[in-house]
Design a binder for these strands. Sequence first.
DNA 1: CACATAAGCTAACGTGTGTTAGTTCTTTCA
DNA 2: TGAAAGAACTAACACACGTTAGCTTATGTG
Lengths: 196, 196
Amino acid sequence: MSKIKITDTTSKKDLIYEVAAGLFREKGFRATSMRELAAKVGIEAASLYNHIHGKNDLLNGICFKVANTFTRKMDEVESEDCTIIEKVEKLIRFHVHEMVTHYQDVYVSDREWRNMEEPELTKYREMRRMYRKRFASIVEKGISRGEIKKIDANTAVMIFLNAIAAVDQWHRIIHKVDSDQLENNMVIVLIEGLKS
Amino acid sequence: MSKIKITDTTSKKDLIYEVAAGLFREKGFRATSMRELAAKVGIEAASLYNHIHGKNDLLNGICFKVANTFTRKMDEVESEDCTIIEKVEKLIRFHVHEMVTHYQDVYVSDREWRNMEEPELTKYREMRRMYRKRFASIVEKGISRGEIKKIDANTAVMIFLNAIAAVDQWHRIIHKVDSDQLENNMVIVLIEGLKS
DNA sequence: CACATAAGCTAACGTGTGTTAGTTCTTTCA
DNA sequence: TGAAAGAACTAACACACGTTAGCTTATGTG
């Protein structure tokens, strides 16, 4: 079937996506060449096309995988029966968790999605927009119930989402602070504030 | 002297930098071509080289302008005589202010600096690293004085810096919320927390 | 008016890119 | 064992890019 034995659990296609995510994160989508990707995978550039349709497919795949993950989590949290603060906390913890476990993908989907082409670009933008909107609705409900300070909900959501997206410094911090502690720090600062 | 009268206050070189920052922000450094930049400026690509040395110079110029601005502000804040919380608040407000007034430049320096080449890349990285370190030192002093909760200072700085860097949604929010209110929301959420 | 110069233009070069065509090798399965 | 097919290879194409060379035009100063 193939020259090189493939692990039962991971196909070559998956390997290509994984390496691509790493390169896109490190150097950016545009700055990563198919030849470079191929070299890291251990084959020639042309051989990549036995497994994928093209460079854009790689970016699309990564971005929508992440977008779908977060959208599904939002479905789950919305339908849960708990306080608003708890919902916000669950979302923050999920973001941190995803960042720690799949940070290459999350980073790429966050920073490189601009390089997608239509019609995927519009679809992705819409998913992003909806996610933020749903997050803001939760915050607004929290404000109206008196659980949350009277602030602009969109600003709050913007702060949250971006606070967590700092992936370049991420690994450095992860190795100093363990990831549970990181999650807790994040929740504390964002929900309780800096001041003691 | 030139075919087109230049405004006394703005040289053509400045105009090129300004348009470049807009394009780099919108499409990314790599995805912006000199031909496209030239078209937006209203000249041919080759004519750009009468004003600048090359594409890399544009990125270098933008990044170091921003880095110098923040480094100078850090000098100022460090030497001020006030509480730690006030220092942190001053820095946050300055970040928001710079973002509102020069968001193209700030955004580009934050997201596109990877595309710089040596030796500028190393120098820029070092400036960034120093800035974060000095910021973290302030937070740590706040912790030891009991003004700030016992959290990981690096994580806190990471949260702050990234919370403010969400420029893509920035203009949208600015037009709904005025920029003073934005600054206040930011300070409230980050210093006092979300919970009421 | 004439000269120097700034700033524009056209044309082109060299390079790197994504991708395709065509071929060869290896493995699986009937 | 032999056919089918998956997956690798080499070679090349077409294109877009940053940049340079060389020329032309316009303008301010003597």
